[in-house]
Write a protein that binds this DNA or RNA. Sequence first.
DNA 1: GCATGCGTATGATGACCATCATGCGAAAGA
DNA 2: TCTTTCGCATGATGGTCATCATACGCATGC
Lengths: 200, 200
Amino acid sequence: MTIMRKTSANARAAAKDATHDRIVGVAARAIRRSGYAGTGVADIMKEAGLTHGAFYSHFPSREAMLAEAAAAACAESVANAAEVAASAPPDEALDAMLAAYLSKKHVEQLETGCPLAALGSETSRQAPEVRRIVTRHIKAAADLIARQSADWGQQSAHERALMTLSTMVGAVVLARAVDEPALSDSLRKAALKHLTSSGH
Amino acid sequence: MTIMRKTSANARAAAKDATHDRIVGVAARAIRRSGYAGTGVADIMKEAGLTHGAFYSHFPSREAMLAEAAAAACAESVANAAEVAASAPPDEALDAMLAAYLSKKHVEQLETGCPLAALGSETSRQAPEVRRIVTRHIKAAADLIARQSADWGQQSAHERALMTLSTMVGAVVLARAVDEPALSDSLRKAALKHLTSSGH
DNA sequence: GCATGCGTATGATGACCATCATGCGAAAGA
DNA sequence: TCTTTCGCATGATGGTCATCATACGCATGC
């Protein structure tokens, strides 16, 4: 009758939790690769090394699983950005984040990159739960940016952070959409130049 | 034996062309509302007042139709922006475009708005034909922006136009994704303020 | 006016989808 | 060791999808 959550003393439950996390991890990459609409239950379970039948012992519905996957992708993405910022000199932290976000590598690796860029335009069509999670993520990302540029005063920093985030996301979205590598590079570099130099 | 294109003397063919255009028009709105992946053949035909069977006498495949729909949406969007620019005093043209693009109305009307904002992150997963069309559209939009700000010299204007476009698209994508109206407004206004004031 | 052509409708096909009922097999607890 | 539990697999269900074969009915051209 004991109610156990998260870490269970029970080895069985621990194994189930591990499987659950593995499915979520696979799904977090799948949604960025194929989009919310393009990600099916069977695909994910197969990629996780399971059969489709086991799915509903881990999630109440496909929708719930998309929400968990979105949360995982968002958490991973913000943590990654925070680490980039932390491992650079404080006065270069913002530039380091911008360089990483607007790098060719990030544009190419959509599957492990920022979910805002990979799923941005699909988000408005998702369930409320997903939108709630993404909204929290956007706030966290904007705060992280604003914190790296405290020299502009509170109000202005927050406003500027929202604009910076918009430019970052838009540039990566367009750089990925385009089918000409040269234009893709130009989009990245134009955003990078104007975001770093205009901060002078 | 006479080969007729576009406008046919034949009334039958003209009616078919009209139907074709009606389907494309419906589809151009449907893809922005529901995404590429969320737009089915049957949905579109029903919305056009036809049954699904007639579809394949108008298009060789669903994919071909998505490409035509994307082209129509892009053309409509660029024409609309050009009109906004043309009906304003030359030195206020860019600001007028920005105000319209970053308006609350545009954020709310995704079905008739900019396809880059409505479909941006889905584009990288589409057929080459769609990506080609979108690439052309991005170039046209950037050119239109650059033309309204010739005072910065050729090279700089083009680079700045790419950045401006990225910010516009990113801001609208995020403003739509978010589920808090206040944050949505902040995203729009932050982009608007920084794009218009930083221009001098 | 009659026959022909062609745009559209009906209906079928097979693939894929989310969801769930049931059964197996291994680990947990006694 | 015996029984109970439960994570996972098998397989079925009903729905939706893109695609196509066929049939109808009206407008066109003789």
